[in-house]
């Protein structure tokens, strides 16, 4: 049985039904990608899991007691704080000894290659560095569940792969139960252990896929997963 699960999750905004009974489980210390067409309710599901939105019906197991960290599509950094202060801001409510938390912040900044820029404010960082900082912040927070909402999208391919490789590196350092929302099949195949495919709105789980190959051996866009790829495209495009 999985540590974290969602069952029968329904959500509507007024007359607009977004989720119509989503059932999913999320094994501990694994990366689950939620894949689906734009606007199908992936982020809504993520926000319900994080407790930012209430579900109309359905239940969550494990999530209500869990601590979350989040990496968003936009880095969401406070422009008046330095890189290290931005991480410290997020960690200010984290459970644990403050000194140990400061140590974590330093460690993940270093792992993300940002230790030399710890004293710089976001205006002085490149777009890629801001994204890396957002990932480092999410890992530095000692959460039970890491949520990634299109954290690798809206950047060029080279930076996208760099960011995903950084994620893998940080994840190996601390294997965190991760749920990533993406609309990109290649991203899901590159990073996830499991893929859940949501249907168009009102969404429910259309398909589930297990990817056994170790993440380290995968190459972005390779044909090694052609079969999976075809199946996922078929799911999404119908």
């Amino acid at each position: 049985m999985s540590a974290f699960a969602a069952s029968g999750i329904r959500k509507a905004f007024g007359d607009l039904a977004v989720l119509s009974g989503v059932d999913a489980d999320f094994p501990a210390a694994s990366v689950t990608a939620i894949l689906g067409p734009s606007g199908c309710g992936k982020t809504t599901l993520l926000n319900i899991i994080a407790g930012l939105l209430p579900a109309d019906s359905g239940s969550l197991t494990g999530f209500p007691e869990a601590g979350f960290s989040y990496s968003f599509q936009e880095p969401r950094l406070l422009p008046w704080l330095t890189a290290s202060e931005n991480v410290a801001f997020a960690l200010s409510g984290a459970p644990g000894d403050p000194q140990a938390l400061a140590g974590r912040a330093e460690r993940f900044l270093r792992s993300a290659g940002l230790d030399k820029f710890a004293g710089q404010r976001p205006a002085k960082l490149s777009g890629g560095m801001k994204r890396r900082l957002s990932l480092a912040r999410a890992f530095a927070y000692p959460s039970d569940v890491l949520l990634l909402d299109e954290a690798f999208s809206a950047v060029d391919l080279k930076l996208r792969i760099e960011l995903m490789d950084l994620f893998s590196l940080l994840w190996r350092e601390e294997r965190r139960t991760t749920i990533m929302v993406t609309h990109d099949v290649q991203d899901a195949l590159y990073l996830a252990d499991r893929v859940l495919v949501l249907s168009s709105r009102p969404a429910k789980v259309l398909d589930r896929l297990e990817i056994a190959a170790p993440r380290e051996s995968r190459r972005y866009g390779s044909r090694d997963f052609a079969e999976f790829e075809e199946r996922l495209y078929e799911d999404i495009l119908g």
Binding site: S69, Y70, A90, Y141, L147
Partner: peptide, 10 residues
């Protein structure tokens, strides 16, 4: 930013 602070329980 407020949403980010909420998620991290600042």
């Amino acid at each position: 930013l407020i949403e980010m602070a909420s998620v991290f329980k600042v």
